[in-house]
């Protein structure tokens, strides 16, 4: 049984008719697995994880056919029962460590708070455990840092503290939402190493939200690619890097600077569709170089098995899969985005 199982997750802000920020998302993660979620800004990566944590508040609305964690239905867990889970079995590290810690309390206090909340330890025992945690996240001079305030710490140090807080109650699943984006490049690698070491030592599952495909290639076992609130492809590493199935994944890989040294960097024209220009059919179709008339319909995320490797892709004409079925690539003027009054109708 999977540790986390998401089926048809939808997140909307503002009423039933609002455009979903996350739409029909399916995702699973097994115990001890490292899953990476990649995608451009605004593709719904963070919102997905916030809804798993139960941090989406009104007017945000989370619906799903299934949202199970460790055999418990998260949608049915309310209030106290849900809070007993988050921060304990299910915890999260956020993007900007400099603002994620409360400026009015010491590092020790903020870690001990979790220890008290979920492990019921107080006083000296809690302090002892907090100290162990700071040593665990490799903070130099851990004992003296317990009484430090967040403004006295550097960004990397703050992120270590945030990680210590997140692993304080030995979670089964740690969600790291772009944990290194706000940090210096030199610190990024250190924090990433720390997270992966912890994941390996504690045997917890790790969901890594990131922009950094190089990190994904080195660390993750599975990848979920998101675009405009949908999962467009899931697959295993390294297959997804060698033979991406979705045109968007292909475009993401082509946009890694190292892949096109000396050449002009490949980019996908256009931007992620917003609230008011959401295409009717495939969400990528207005930007897709392979778009066909059929792309005015909405494809589903279909599982496939190819050469013994399984994954899923949301495309009528997946790349690197059944090339004999590919239709001819249309010149730009004949693609559906350029047909009058079709693709740009509001969904």
């Amino acid at each position: 049984m999977s540790l986390l199982e998401i089926q048809n997750l939808n997140v909307r802000f503002g009423g039933k008719d609002a455009i979903p920020v996350v739409e029909g998302l399916d995702l699973t993660i097994d115990q001890g697995e490292v899953l990476a979620i990649v995608g451009e800004s605004g593709s719904g990566k963070s919102v997905t994880m916030m809804s798993v944590m139960g941090l989406i508040e009104a007017p945000g609305e989370v619906t799903a056919n299934r949202l199970n964690f460790a055999g418990q239905d998260l949608l049915k867990l309310k209030g106290r029962a849900r809070r007993q889970l988050i921060g304990k079995d299910l915890s999260m590290v956020f993007q900007d460590p400099m603002t994620a810690l409360n400026p009015s309390y010491t590092v020790g206090y903020q870690i001990e708070e979790v220890i008290h909340q979920h492990l019921g330890l107080r006083g000296r025992e809690a302090r002892q455990r907090a100290l162990q945690l700071l040593e665990r996240v490799e903070i130099p001079g851990a004992a003296s840092r317990l009484s430090a305030y967040p403004h006295q710490l550097s960004g990397g140090m703050s992120q270590r503290v945030a990680i210590a807080m997140a692993i304080a109650a030995e979670p089964k699943l740690l969600i790291a939402d772009e944990p290194t984006t706000a940090l210096d490049v030199t610190i990024q690698a250190q924090i990433m190493d720390l997270l992966l070491n912890l994941q390996r030592d504690e045997g917890m599952a790790l969901i890594l939200i990131t922009h950094d495909l190089a990190v994904v290639a080195e660390t993750a076992q599975r990848v979920c690619v998101m675009y405009a609130g949908q999962a467009v492809e899931t697959g295993v590493v390294p297959d997804i890097f060698q033979a991406p199935k979705h045109p968007y994944t292909e475009a993401l890989l082509a946009a890694i600077p190292e892949h096109s040294l000396g050449e002009r960097l490949s980019t996908l024209p256009g931007i992620v569709p917003g609230r008011y220009d959401r295409p009717k059919g495939c969400l990528l179709s207005p930007r897709c170089p392979y778009a066909q008339p059929r792309c005015l319909e909405r494809p589903a995320l279909e599982p496939y098995t190819h050469n013994g490797i399984s994954g899923s892709v949301r495309c009528f004409f997946p790349r690197n899969l059944n090339p004999e079925q590919w239709p001819e690539v249309l010149p730009e003027s004949q693609r559906p985005s350029h047909l009058p009054g079709e693709a740009h109708g509001r969904a």
Partner: peptide, 24 residues
């Protein structure tokens, strides 16, 4: 963000509001 962090710790709403938010 730190209010979100406090919620993500699984603290009670009263603790989030009075200890983490009101203090600041």
């Amino acid at each position: 963000d730190y209010v979100r962090t406090a919620k993500a710790k699984g603290l009670s709403p009263a603790r989030v509001v009075f200890i983490h938010a009101l203090r600041n």
